[in-house]
């Protein structure tokens, strides 16, 4: 019965298309907001206050040169004197640490050759979270907005509007294979794509037509638009930038499944 009704509807239907929502997952963690920063700061200070005293004798043998170098950098708090009033509490110095506050340890910097870039002792310089592509606002680059997922949108040749890529389905091919093959024919084979599931994540109902969107991730490689495809341009956009370019109908439909 179901098969019969299905067939009758599919005859009425003009076309079924497979859409691809190709995303680049975030490379770096998301920006912390002010509340998170202050909370993490508070808890880390609390943790430092409740920490045991640094076991100096374990790491620096008493009487050694290493101990002398270490000792030179430390500022030891003064112990409590008799007949002195301490407005912020009497210091309780044990093993060179005031037990009422956190211990401030300074480690001697290891010597290293500044010319030698592979030296293990060189100071760690983390890469900037803002890349060149961010500064240039290069919408075709995958190195932009590293803390957000980016989604591929393409410009149609016929209507010159920005859409998510959609592909027609051949005989005896499934939705996910059609979407994958369509991406390779439009964007070139040099993309490492992982399709999460062969189940569609979303349906877009256009009077009689249907577009079923398949979610997939790009893991490596780059999208290079081929000239023979139905699209004339492409962009990698974060979900906050997509509504500025795509039509509101499409955005209202797709917005539910974007992160």
């Amino acid at each position: 019965m179901r098969a019969l009704t299905g067939r009758s509807i599919s005859k009425r239907c003009m076309s079924i298309k497979a859409g691809a929502i190709l995303s680049r997952m975030p490379v770096i963690t998301k920006e912390l907001d002010d509340f998170e920063i202050s909370y993490y700061n508070y808890t880390s200070e609390l943790e430092k206050r409740l920490m045991w005293t640094f076991p100096q004798k374990f790491f620096f043998r008493p009487g050694s040169l290493a101990e002398r170098d270490f000792e030179e950098l430390q500022t030891r708090p003064a112990g409590a004197e008799k007949l002195v009033y301490y407005p912020f509490g009497r210091p309780d110095v044990v093993e060179g640490r005031d037990r009422n506050s956190k211990q401030d340890i300074r480690l001697p910097a290891p010597s290293y050759d500044p010319e030698d870039k592979s030296s293990m002792s060189r100071p760690i310089e983390p890469n900037s979270r803002i890349t060149d592509a961010d500064k240039k606002n290069d919408l075709k680059s995958l190195e932009r907005a590293l803390d957000k997922p980016l989604y591929l949108v393409v410009k149609e040749k016929s209507s010159s509007s920005w859409v998510f890529p959609t592909f027609s389905i051949n005989e005896d091919s499934a939705l996910h294979t059609a979407a994958e093959e369509g991406l390779f024919t439009t964007g070139g084979p040099d993309m490492n794509i992982w399709t999460v599931s062969n189940t569609p994540a979303l349906v877009q109902k256009l009077s009689e037509d249907r577009v079923y969107y398949i979610k997939s991730h790009i893991l490596a490689g780059s999208f290079k638009l081929s000239r023979s495809s139905d699209y004339i341009d492409f962009m990698w956009l974060s979900s906050s930038e997509i509504p500025k370019h795509v039509s509101s109908d499409l955005w209202n439909c797709v917005n539910k499944i974007l992160n």
Binding site: V27, I28, T29, P126, N127, T131, E143, F184, N192, A220
Partner: peptide
């Protein structure tokens, strides 16, 4: 996929491997 990486606080030296080529081993 083993190629998926967990987001880190700072990006790697090469944020995105755009020169990835499909070889005969990782054919679709």
């Amino acid at each position: 996929p083993r190629e998926i990486r967990i987001p880190t606080d700072t990006p790697p030296n090469v944020p995105w491997d755009s020169s990835w080529k499909r070889s005969s081993e990782n054919k679709k």
